[in-house]
Amino acid sequence: MKNIWTIAKREYDNYFASPLAYVIAAGLLFLLGGIFLIILQGSIQQAIFGGGTPVDIGFINQWFYYLLLWTVPALTMRLISDENRTGTLELLLTAPVRDFELVIGKWLGSFLYILSVIGVSFIFAIVANYLAEPGIDQVKMMSSYLGLILIAGALLALGTGISALFNNQIAAFFVTLALFIVLWLLIGIPASFFPSNPAIGDVFRYLQIGNHYESTFNAGVLYLSDVIYFLSLIAIGLFTGVTAVDSRRWR
């Protein structure tokens, strides 16, 4: 277990050694900050004319979720593929580290990185809470963040798993991105092909990421099935990674 932490820590520090991670963090926070200011302005104008609603953090986090779909592939693409390419995997696989510790450590490092960015974005919630009287709906806000964290964990796990399948980080990037676009949008399309058989449509709808966040977590409603969905994605991603690393030995 200590090995997971050792690997995660190195990976986390490594993000801060690369300009890409800074660019992604800065870009995310800049875009979200812009959206925040626009809706804040809307709320303030409403307040001037009397009444109005406080800023909805769920709206920001909705955007955060869309942005994660496009940035996570860049954060995970080199996690394991680059160790393959440069040969450093040989160091890790001949150290007393189990394959699952390696993969979970890698994932955890990227997860901690995203958690840091989410942590910074929490400023928006604090500011919104400060400006509204008597404050924003805190239960809804917490649930929205919890869902966002689960989405990040799931996307990062899938990205980590795919990274272990490749020697080339660009290949890992595009495959990860393609998978995310499927889970975000395309998987929902077949649902409409089965109007007479709602059960089949439900299966496809269940697979779609947004259906587990947009009107549940992000609206302050928690369902166990949503939590299970994200935990399953994490398990699938990590399992893929461990299997891929293990199968490399057998080549």
């Binding site: 200590k2 050792t6 190195r10 490594n14 040969g87 450093t88 001949t94 007393p96």
Partner: peptide, 26 residues
């Protein structure tokens, strides 16, 4: 083990790398 290709993390500081390897070996 010293692998033939001497794989190392180029973006790491020498002592941090060695500390990392030492920690993996508890």
């Amino acid at each position: 083990y010293l692998p033939e290709t001497v794989p190392l993390y180029n973006e790491m500081v020498v002592q941090d790398f060695l500390k990392f390897m030492a920690e993996l070996r508890h």
